[in-house]
Design a protein around this nucleic acid. Structure first.
Lengths: 135, 135
DNA sequence: TCAAAATAGGATAAAATTACTCCTGATTTG
DNA sequence: CAAATCAGGAGTAATTTTATCCTATTTTGA
């Protein structure tokens, strides 16, 4: 029921890039700053680039920057970029996984709770998160 | 981010017992009715008994019944009985798992989303679920 | 132009968790 | 006492998570 560590790290990466405000940050810098392993962080950043959340520049002076404004990126997007669509149960991913979906009174509850979660996580942009930063 | 299959099965068990309305149902019957494996279902029922959600009677004519009224058991309780306390991230389980909790602006978001989820899942009793049953 | 710094991506490996099974023992009923 | 049933510990298989490593490829600047 937890988000994966990968997703947690991805959020930290985006927070870092948002704070860096356009200056390209190489993997090593991001990983060190957040206490994450460099190769694993590299993989995560790759996924963020593929999702359009981050952008990369190769070569000396290269690194990663945000692919969109912090106000345009939400927690939900980042989580889904690394761990795929948020789903509370197999039957919510695909009804084929559960032949009971059609006559199961619990199914709509998973759907409802999942929709609530997505809505809330989708409402937190990184602009909002950055402003709320205590220190 | 999904509930485990164990938790899904546990919910089905409780639904079945609620529908059985006090008649003791042996593991084999429950497992067969829900298309689950018998030994695995037995393990899950054991956890439900330990959590007070179900009760058991040994011997011939024995089986499982609910330990409380359907109106007194919620989805949240059943899920937590088998997979432990619901938590969205390691840092929400225990702040010791994350030395960033104190200065991390994402931490309160995990807490908020988690609280919402618990509240909603806690609002669904099995009495309510049973009534909403289409067929 | 070439060396250094950086990302890209595929393959692989270790660890943890999930999803089970099996066996032996204890209890209850008739 | 025999049959049916749960209790619980130990063990196993499969899957997912959490990484690492290696070989490109790109970019910059001396």
């Amino acid at each position: 029921m937890q988000i994966t560590r990968e997703a947690d790290y991805a959020v930290r990466c985006v927070m870092y890039l948002a704070a860096a405000a356009g200056r390209p940050a190489p993997v090593g810098e991001i990983a060190d700053a957040q206490g994450m392993s460099t190769p694993f962080t590299a993989k995560i950043l790759q996924k963020l680039v593929n999702a359009g959340i981050a952008a990369s520049r190769r070569g000396i002076k290269g690194g990663f920057v945000l692919g969109k404004a912090p106000s345009e990126t939400t927690l939900l997007e980042v989580i889904e970029a690394v761990q795929g669509p948020l789903a509370l149960n197999v039957c919510v991913v695909d009804k084929k996984n559960c032949d009971r979906s059609s006559h199961c009174s619990v199914h709509p509850v998973w759907m409802e709770v999942q929709a609530d979660m997505k809505k809330k996580l989708g409402s937190y942009t990184f602009e909002r998160l950055l402003k709320g930063k205590p220190h």
